[in-house]
Amino acid sequence: MEENRPKRMAIIASQGTLDWAYPPFILASTAAAMNMEVTIFFTFYGLTLLKKKVKGKVAPQTNPAMPMRMPFGPNWFQKLTWPIPNVIMGNVPFFENMATGLMKKTFKNKKVMSIEELRQMCLDLNVKMVGCQMTMDVFGFKKEEFIDGVDIGGAATFLNFASDADIQLFV
């Protein structure tokens, strides 16, 4: 065993919604900044995070704890949490689009990076990104749809790295 090797982190990113897109990239960029070697394996819906333009949305209906707040207006107004019952979320057309727009605006107001910017920062920090071949076959994704610098592999590719990693996370 190498004694002085850098620490390693292995992440499986399995979700493609806007909110769940953040944790893998935030952890990966931070770990890389802490001199760790990082591989993210993108599988199932997580694979969509490798597309050139990330179209992830938020799904408030399946995340009941999500605070529904307005990203504009006076401070007291922005602090209000709007109790919106599932029956409305589920039946108002394009409710997800609206919630997604509000979250993007909130992130922008708070100066949180977009997913595309965060992902590029990860690549600049040498985070390795691997797309799941099986998911590509199932959903009909092609490598050309993904950003440059992505490798393609399967479970064994991930496990080979993960078995020697100090941190393994499933997101």
């Binding site: 931070t30 001199n35 708070k110 949180v112």
Partner: peptide, 14 residues
């Protein structure tokens, strides 16, 4: 100033 996690750590690291 004004930057949120993970940017400050990444910028310090760079």
């Amino acid at each position: 100033k004004g930057l949120l996690c993970p940017i400050p750590v990444v910028k310090i690291s760079n």
